[in-house]
Design a protein around this nucleic acid. Structure first.
Lengths: 218, 218, 218, 218
DNA sequence: GCCTAAACGAGACGGTACGTCAAGTCTTCTG
DNA sequence: CAGAAGACTTGACGTACCGTCTCGTTTAGGC
């Protein structure tokens, strides 16, 4: 529980910070694709081996830098109502944060390297989902969300939208979007099924024609 | 305007097909990250220059192969009701298609290379959105969707969910998900605002406490 | 001139032996080229600094190990006749000794590093020459070798042969070779000049055609 | 049997020469130990890969450069007498040639790398021995050398002396040494056994005391 | 019985060169 | 003249040791 320093030269915190910093600066200036381990080491004024000793790829360096810099607690606000919580959380989440380059770079890496994908999910993505899940769980406990609503699906829709716009950069992100989304979600989970009954949210869905001939992909 | 064959040896369609094919095979066997221009050329039994003459990166090759192979028309079903159309489209869209490797590889490339990102959006992604937009527009014309609903947001939520699960691979994709989504969206667009009025979907949002202290990111 | 032990922890003889030993073992197992200071330290169970504190290169370590292990006195036998002395000395010298790897490794180092070359000559090579020189000097004093014979040349021929075969490993080394060499040398130093007179050993040499056009190298 | 040029870009002779040249220059200026593949490539204005494509180590480069530059035919002079041939050959061989750095560097490499040692022996060293062997064989055919003299031993003594002095650099090399050596060898092969009989050159050697206690090494 | 001082183990540090890989360009020959 | 073959320059990759440096620990005198 203590420092637990054994023998040997202790790790240099200065070097560590220099590396994380150099990585972030290079990334901001030239983008993730142009980032290299050599470049990071050079800019940090550090031996290449010192980078490789602690991280095995540029993605690892950037992930650690991101986590350390974005290390504000992800709190789940508790306003007592689903509407209040959702609005607070989503407007905060969708606020522009200038981390697009970092995030999309890491996602690209995750898509290319399954090993890193796991680390990215576990150390970053999933920890963000927890707060939203907590909000929805509380609302469900209060009866604000029907029990048959798939809350994981809701979470994925929120983060799906966020990431989709982050990646494509074709439409705005920001507080207004968060607020819009709040409204949409509230109606989706609270309203009675539109037409006849509750059938359409059941796994069987509408029995109407399912045209297998149309095959839109992605 | 068609053939337009000038002087010189015509382009070899055989080589073109061999290249696209070799790319897809290598991609299936070893993944997008391991794909190389050298490898494609070698496997296609073609000089490297022949690949570079027509495509400028492995992403371009794969994108063309994808478009050519997935070149079924993305039809917008027209069942006459929003529910029918949505269900048909979404179940078809979310059907598993085994193209995850191709799609995530291309997305990774798009995230790393803005130039390619543009091509990817224009030649692939946006053409898929058109069908869904058509469905929603028709429903709006019929009055099934209130005019103040941001239909682009709906589209992004659908494709956001799809891509998010494609990329993270942490939750299922498939027809049932498409059906669930149909239900959720129908309620979201058709229901009256949950509580008092329509206020919450307005850009102003709830006036209640907006806790600036909580700063969830992404 | 004494122990001269000041304050401070005394040098660990155990560590010294462990290092020399580890060096010899690694050298036997993997050869001189694969020997590294880190490897020696690791195998000896010793900090790298402890090796560097006392030796400045792997060659120094090995040289010291060699000297310490081959520290039998190099006696110049005194049988009273050149033939007896030479035979005794050369058969002993050419006896196979399994130190080829050590010796050739050190020689390689000496060829690459002039600094080490000096140490190698002074601390090892030249001390071996002394015994042979003593034998030849005694024989010269007894008149068994003409005064005009360059005894340094003889010594170099003996050790040259030894090292040449050590290094090239293309022809045998061993007692029989030593004995052959004895015979050859005896005849070379005792016989009257072959043809006309003693001229050919003089610095002027044969006056016959010296074809400067033929230029064999090494 | 000649050009045998298939398709593909032909090897650049300019690059080849630039590399060999750069290697020799660097070697002359900073010595073999300081020579590196990167340095050669840089100095030759050539990619590292171009060096590695054709040679697998700096030793290979230098060996080829040496062979190409020292590619004068090693002629065995034929003066009709052993004395004439030997004198011509040895004075030529021992003439100073300023290749000491190259030769000792290559020898060092050969001592460290058995693979290279083979190439060095076969492509360089042994081709030099052939001329001397021819001289000795002719003399033997003429009866100038007794049949029981081990001519390989004589060759090794000559080259042993040469290399020993090349490596240790403690005594002169040059024409006078070649001439001295001629005299010495002539007497060694032509003279009758010094003392009583021919016994001492037989493989059994003198039966007198063989002092196993004295163990000079190398 | 502390105090000073050096050697010890451990191991992180800034570097250099390694040998490999793929990129994208060029040069030649073949069909 | 398109296409194959393949040599070219370039530059990042990840590895191995280098020799130096800081640690905390150990082992001796010296006061």
């Amino acid at each position: 529980m203590t420092d637990q320093r054994g023998p040997g030269r202790p790790r240099s915190e200065a070097a560590r910070q220099a590396i994380l910093n150099a990585a972030m600066l290079d990334l901001d200036e030239h983008g993730y694709a142009a980032l290299t381990m050599q470049g990071i080491a050079a800019r940090a004024g550090v031996g290449k081996q010192t980078v490789y000793r602690w991280w095995s790829s540029k993605a690892d360096v950037v992930l650690e830098a991101l986590i350390e810099r974005a290390e504000q607690v992800v709190v789940a606000p508790d306003a007592g109502t689903l509407e209040g919580d959702l609005d607070a959380f989503l407007t905060a989440t969708f606020r522009e944060h200038g981390l697009r380059r970092v995030l999309t770079g890491l996602m690209a890496q995750a898509l290319l390297d399954p090993e890193f994908a796991k680390a990215f999910r576990d150390r970053f993505l999933f920890s963000r989902r927890a707060a939203l899940r907590q909000i929805l769980d509380r609302a469900a406990a209060r009866g604000e969300i029907p029990a048959d609503v798939d809350r994981e699906l809701l979470i994925d829709m929120v983060y799906g939208l966020l990431w989709y716009r982050l990646m494509l950069d074709h439409a705005p992100l920001g507080e207004p979007v968060g607020r819009q989304l709040t409204g949409l979600l509230l109606r989706a989970v609270s309203a009675p099924p539109p037409g006849t009954g509750a059938a359409s949210t059941s796994p069987s869905g509408p029995t109407s024609s399912r045209p297998t001939s149309s095959r839109p992909t992605s």
